[in-house]
């Protein structure tokens, strides 16, 4: 099986989405919501959960590899810059190597301001 060289997912991350994520993921940290803590905090406004953009990396891997991603996938990322809502995020995967049935991708997530939000590596067994 040949694997795709690159693929990506883009989506608007706005405050209502972040608010819904806070409830669904049971993450009550006020820096992610319209709170005094967020506006008085280091970023001066609410920031999106990093896990939302990591979820987009996982979504892209799912679109490319289907259930194999959930069965065999690994991902390791570092967050580089907080996502200041609203922003359009693009999660991108670029093939690094494909050896012995395991594809390794460099993964990134960027925003529409040109900031890199996340970098890392993802692997999946496809054969």
């Amino acid at each position: 099986m040949s694997v795709p060289a690159s693929f990506e997912v883009s989506r608007l991350i706005d405050q209502p989405r972040v608010d819904r994520y806070a409830v669904a993921a049971r993450d009550p940290n006020p820096i992610h919501r319209e709170t005094p803590e967020a506006y008085e905090g280091p970023f001066g406004q609410p920031v999106a959960h990093g896990m939302i953009v990591l979820g987009m990396v996982s979504e892209a891997m799912t679109q490319a590899f289907g259930p194999a991603w959930a069965e065999t996938g690994t991902v390791k990322v570092r967050w580089r810059t907080p996502g200041l809502t609203p922003f359009t995020a693009t999660a991108r995967a670029e093939l690094k190597k494909d050896v012995d049935g395991i594809a390794t991708y460099d993964v990134t997530c960027t925003d529409d301001r040109g900031e890199t939000l996340l970098t890392g590596t993802a692997t999946v067994r496809h054969a």
Partner: peptide, 8 residues
């Protein structure tokens, strides 16, 4: 939250 790793 500075990093995250997951292995299935």
């Amino acid at each position: 939250h500075t990093g995250q790793e997951h292995e299935s």
